[in-house]
């Protein structure tokens, strides 16, 4: 059977306005989730290197659980499973943000841990020897240096999380992929529409890469 397929540019262009409606959801879920994930990452990342085992232990458990299970299972569990427990429905947007937050939080914890542990021990010794408390030494000496080293892996995680939101089409959030699926159901132009969907993801992730690179350059320049 010979293919007579031809890329229909008009169909691709026509789909754009409809697909663009998914972008706010994609961005909201990604960046809302990542913002919370960053906070979780700082908290659990720091707990995971705490000297007290009863703080370290739960943090490590959280990290292993959310890093070791698929994000698709996590969001299905939150959206379909948790309502049984709390006795009421969870809206898909909330479920999506929660899944990104918990999942990226686990990975960011490891980024935070790695960043902090990469700073030479001499730095904290210098801080302590000057009379700074452990807390002061951490926030004035260790953290600013660690954070700079965390920028590239954080950027990585942001890009991964943005793409992960595409999975949430399964719980019916009107994000980019979901919009595409709905549109295709009426027009049967899968090739063109998914092509545009892919381009839109690329536009988001490339802009982010660019911003991060500028940020990194500024950070490196002052070290």
């Amino acid at each position: 059977m010979e293919s007579t397929f031809q890329f229909d540019w008009q169909a691709a262009i026509d789909a754009i306005p409809y697909l663009l409606k998914g972008i706010p959801y994609t961005l909201l879920i990604s960046f809302g989730g990542l913002l919370i994930g960053f906070v979780l990452g700082i908290i659990f990342g720091l707990l995971s290197i705490n000297r007290k085992w009863f703080l370290r232990w739960p943090a490590t458990a959280y990290i292993e659980v959310f890093r070791g299970t698929p994000i698709l299972v996590q969001v299905l569990f939150i959206f379909y499973g948790l309502p049984d427990l709390i006795g009421g429905p969870i809206d898909p947007l909330t479920a999506g943000i929660a899944a990104i937050a918990l999942n990226s939080g686990a990975y960011i914890s490891e980024v935070v841990r790695g960043g902090v542990q990469s700073i030479d021990k001499g730095q904290s010794e210098a801080g302590l020897s000057l009379g700074l408390s452990r807390t002061q030494t951490f926030w004035s000496v260790i953290w600013p240096q660690a954070f700079r080293r965390m920028i590239p892996p954080l950027g990585n995680q942001a890009i991964v999380s943005i793409k992960d939101t595409s999975l949430f089409s399964v719980i019916g959030v009107g994000e980019l992929v979901r919009q595409g699926q709905v549109y295709i159901a009426n027009t049967f132009t899968a090739f063109e529409v998914y092509f545009v969907v892919a381009l839109l993801y690329l536009a988001i992730t490339l802009s982010l890469s660019l911003i991060l690179r500028l940020l990194e350059r500024r950070g490196v320049a002052s070290v």
Binding site: G122, E125, S129
Partner: peptide
């Protein structure tokens, strides 16, 4: 004690940032 005792290290340990 640490307020009253200064220390200088082999590797300087200045704060690079």
């Amino acid at each position: 004690i640490r307020k009253e005792v200064g220390m200088v290290f082999q590797q300087f340990n200045l704060f690079p940032h």
